[in-house]
């Protein structure tokens, strides 16, 4: 389904409408902030790179291509911008080896709600199991359930087609279900 407001906001931004840009900023700031924090693990750096990134988007608005959906563009461009900055600024080797395309997301127990609607995810080891998933599956889980993005947007961010993004999500859930049932067998 086409997202009308996204299309409208994007068009207005390209025409230099600061109100439209403010809507865009306030809508996506929380999601990108969390995403940046997951990648860089540093608050000040995340904030600084976000400001630089949004300024860049506004100043280059005339060169932006037309978009149906804004989220994929913002997520991939910001990720690229953040990792570039990390590589430039940081002397830590691990960032040097960072791949712009594949990121390794780590979940912490504090982030998982104690109240889970699904029986499967109520398991107390769920954080460990989540972190054990392959990187791509972790990222898909993050984008879908943490950032609340739809499969179409996830596919664009991960640069794969819709079916492949859907499969990655399904596989991740399947893996988690299997791991949880194995744990239950062992414990019973």
């Amino acid at each position: 389904m086409k997202n009308l407001s996204d299309e409208y906001v994007w068009k207005a931004l390209k025409e230099g409408d600061l109100n439209a840009f403010s809507i865009l900023y306030k809508t996506y700031y929380p999601m990108l902030y969390n995403y940046g924090l997951k990648i860089s693990r540093k608050v000040p750096l995340t904030e600084d790179t976000l400001q630089d990134f949004f300024l860049y988007v506004y100043e280059h608005r005339e060169n932006l291509s037309d978009l149906d959906s804004i989220a994929p563009y913002l997520f991939s461009s910001y990720r690229r911008h953040l990792i570039k900055t990390l590589k430039k600024k940081s002397k830590i080797v691990s960032f040097d080896e960072m791949d712009v395309k594949v990121i390794d997301i780590q979940f912490t127990p504090e982030e998982i709600l104690t109240h889970q609607e699904s029986e499967t995810f109520k398991n107390k080891n769920i954080t460990v199991l989540l972190n054990k998933l392959p990187k791509r599956q972790k990222e898909a889980i993050y984008l879908k359930y943490y950032s609340g993005l739809n499969t179409n947007d996830i596919a664009s961010i991960m640069e794969v087609n819709y079916q492949s993004a859907a499969n990655t999500i399904h596989k991740a859930i399947k893996n988690l279900r299997e791991e949880v049932s194995i744990l239950q067998l062992i414990n019973s």
């Binding site: 929380p30 902030y33 969390n34 109240h115 699904s118 995810f121 769920i126 279900r177």
Partner: peptide, 16 residues
């Protein structure tokens, strides 16, 4: 499995 995909993992968001 389909039910789990729909419900997903619920995260506590640490939003600014």
């Amino acid at each position: 499995e389909a039910k789990d995909i729909i419900l997903g993992v619920q995260f506590k968001l640490n939003e600014p």
